[in-house]
Design a protein around this nucleic acid. Structure first.
Length: 224
DNA sequence: CCGTGATCATTC
DNA sequence: GAATGATCACGG
């Protein structure tokens, strides 16, 4: 094992320092620096901010199974004027078979959330896209108190899926982690299979962190 | 087609 | 105001 945890933690710390360099800058400034267009309609550019911050910090664009950086996952955090997270945070898609068979310790959720670099960005209708400012980034590492909450949610959700109760799951299940639709529209279906291996097509779903949870993470970071 | 980047729009 | 279910863009 070449990259031990101490090495990764240090790498993530260096990334955090670079992310701090973005604090106070506007999306317009950042887009200009990278010679990127800034979409006029935020509604048509829902993932634009995430991609912009990725580029600013040197992450590679595109869909990946692994975390954004070897050392951590990068997440922008939409915040209101008071700096409070105002939306849930996407974690990863739900793969039914994996959810039935993978213990928490080996789960994609845990891998993605082992270490996360959160970059707060102003969001919401009261601030125009170009004028939205980047906040002070913070690094969060999953530790026992929070991990216990996440594990419990994961186990609860996994158990329902394992018992074939997928349709009983909605966004109200889970204290910190929830499952919600994740698709172009409600008619989309992806391939899956049931408990007996019989193929079926289901609405794509994903894990999200509740805003109440990321608010708590942010509070913790401010106290530290 | 599917996963990653998320926010939108309506309901609660 | 917060939460849920729906939706938009893009890379591979």
């Amino acid at each position: 094992m070449i990259a031990n945890d101490a090495v990764l933690e240090r790498a993530a710390g260096e990334l955090l320092v670079r992310a701090h360099g973005l604090a106070g800058r506007t999306l317009a400034e950042l887009a200009h620096a990278f010679e990127l267009p800034l979409p006029d309609a935020p509604a048509r550019a829902k993932g634009y901010v995430g991609g912009l911050i990725e580029r600013a910090l040197g992450a590679r664009a595109g869909s990946r199974e692994a975390t954004d950086f070897p050392s951590c996952e990068l997440k922008t955090l939409p915040v209101d004027r008071e700096g409070r997270p105002r939306e849930s945070t996407f974690v990863c898609t739900v793969v039914l078979a994996a959810l039935r068979e993978t213990p928490w310790e080996d789960s994609r959720v845990r891998a993605k959330l082992a270490r996360v670099l959160f970059v707060p960005v102003e969001s919401g209708g009261d601030v125009a896209h170009p004028q939205r400012r980047i906040g002070r980034a913070f690094l969060w590492e999953m530790r026992p108190p929070h991990e216990a909450v996440l594990r419990e949610d994961y186990l609860l959700l996994a158990e329902r899926v394992a018992q074939g109760q997928l349709e009983s799951i909605d966004a109200r299940v889970g204290v910190a982690l929830q499952i919600r639709p994740k698709a172009a529209n409600a008619a989309v279906r992806v391939r899956a299979h049931d408990l007996d291996g019989v193929p079926l097509r289901v609405l794509p779903r994903a894990f999200y962190l509740r805003a109440s949870f990321t608010r708590e993470l942010l509070r913790g970071a401010l106290q530290a």
